[in-house]
Design a protein around this nucleic acid. Sequence first.
DNA 1: AAGCATAGGATTATCGATTGCGCAATATAT
DNA 2: ATATATTGCGCAATCGATAATCCTATGCTT
Lengths: 341, 341
Amino acid sequence: MKTEKTTIHDIARHLNITASTVSRALKDHPKISSETKKAVHKTAQKLNYQPNHIAAALRNGKSNIIGIIVPTVDRSFFSSVVRGIEEIANTAKYNVMICQTYDNFEKEVSTVEALLNARVDGIIVSHAKETLNFDHFLKVKERGIPLIMFDRYNDELEVSNVVIDDFLGAYKVTEHLIQQGCKRIAHFTNTRKISIFKDRLRGYREALADNGLPYADELVVESNLQQEDGKAGMQHLLTLKEIPDGLFSASAMGALGAMEALKERNLRIPEDVAIVTFSNETFTSVTEPPLTTVDQHSMRIGNAAAEIFLEEINARERKFIPQKIVLKPELIIRRSSLRKK
Amino acid sequence: MKTEKTTIHDIARHLNITASTVSRALKDHPKISSETKKAVHKTAQKLNYQPNHIAAALRNGKSNIIGIIVPTVDRSFFSSVVRGIEEIANTAKYNVMICQTYDNFEKEVSTVEALLNARVDGIIVSHAKETLNFDHFLKVKERGIPLIMFDRYNDELEVSNVVIDDFLGAYKVTEHLIQQGCKRIAHFTNTRKISIFKDRLRGYREALADNGLPYADELVVESNLQQEDGKAGMQHLLTLKEIPDGLFSASAMGALGAMEALKERNLRIPEDVAIVTFSNETFTSVTEPPLTTVDQHSMRIGNAAAEIFLEEINARERKFIPQKIVLKPELIIRRSSLRKK
DNA sequence: AAGCATAGGATTATCGATTGCGCAATATAT
DNA sequence: ATATATTGCGCAATCGATAATCCTATGCTT
């Protein structure tokens, strides 16, 4: 049943040569005659030889595997990024190992350790919402293993990162609401002040300021940004003396909850309250009405992250200077915010 | 910068003992005194020792990695299955390596090869829609590596598989439409006749027959089941002399397209055409109206698949008899099909 | 006190691929 | 024809962890 796996030694034995010659022949080493190479390939085929990457990895000290850590792949943003990484990685003969933290700090720490022990050649990560302590990532850096962060990142780590311009996205989308005639715009932000949410909040505030609209604390609701939070948030906003006429939710799930609350009160979207949100999740296009969002070019984020990894790997000895890539977000306008035709 | 990684030999040197003792001490081998163990753990800590899984994998012939192959993780069904697998696998000290085929046959073949070369201890897979030839999976079997298929599978391979009862799900959901008063129910199925779609079609037909409704070829539309296919499919159905009053789409994206077509024609859902679909994707609950679907217990599918893997690994030498686990699906009734209050 | 068991480790080979160094045989130069 | 290059490949070590086998002091038995 269990076929004995054939090794380069088996091939060598068949041809009366040594394993080292086989190894070189398979790698197309210039010092091996083309006849030998041909013979080696032929018997490799015949014996159904499959290289043992583990052995090679041990010897070479590199596994040709890139570890990817994301909160969950169950969101089109993250899975698209992963796809973008794979696109580039595969052409460079790297495989990826995808791990999910489910936004849990302990799981993130143990995942990093597991990847380190698996001797991945690099790690690309978007950290958990819970993560406040970055020591586990520091360890990666100290090991000399390329670490690239995307979307959610931490400046103090001094590693390369790829992000979209959250500030600009927030600014544009808020400005869009203003252009649609909104005067009293609410904002859903995350309790945990990770960079992306801080930037979105800044974008929101600056757009208001630049357009002569006042900022009101009561219109900014902090939560975990899940659907139920969004619903509760909107229900709360509707108790204000003066209810908002627009909402910019920093998360799509939050926007969904808000829509629910509005429908229950028979308020119209966008006529009574216009809604815009972030991250172009699949479902944003199928809600009623479809949601205006900011597209984050997730695939390109992945491409860029993988490219940085490759550069960094090749830089090696020479010191590599961490770089920051900021992609421009794009507005996707749908009915949830379209008051003017 | 690049910290020299410490090995068990370094620890051994520090304590004036041998590497094998260190190895045994770390694994809590009974033949090592507790003092030595304590000392080893202490200096391991001090030297910041991290085991090299690659070396162990080479020596032991097992990597403690389970390969997972899915069409894409960008669908809650698959990502939930993955999560279910991880849940069980992690408790048994296995890590997972997730790979996506994007429903492409060549990518699937090369992925299988990559996993084999990475010497994974087992493979859990839901194959690509395109896949008709299963030789690459046969190779996995021949290597003696546990192979478990879920959702989409192939009977001829004689490997364990975990599925939900597609027939029953289809039967129940069609019957539900009938109970809601539908007399002329259409069905969207896939062009490629992989088992799950065949079973859903059977369930549909049998439910019709059991309830005295005629089967009509013109009401069954074959496509790739994407959103645009669903839209086109419904547009076609609306040109029939007698249009349908119900639709069972074998895919959620297809149902979405159908809704689009109906809305454009100002037909009401569910009053004019009631809709039900399969697979409880996130977005099905946020459409207008929300879609009635069949929940596939995706997390439990993953649990079961991982459990079979563990059994199979432990069976080893003894011959393992492939098993088939069929989970019962559950109806989730939402407004898209609810005519009676 | 001689004989045997046992605890606690040391030796050494091994997993499969890779590579620096060395060497023989052939080719080229002068 | 002698000296030097070049071609083509073998030798042996190495990557880090592990396990089968072998040793050597103690401890225990009668």
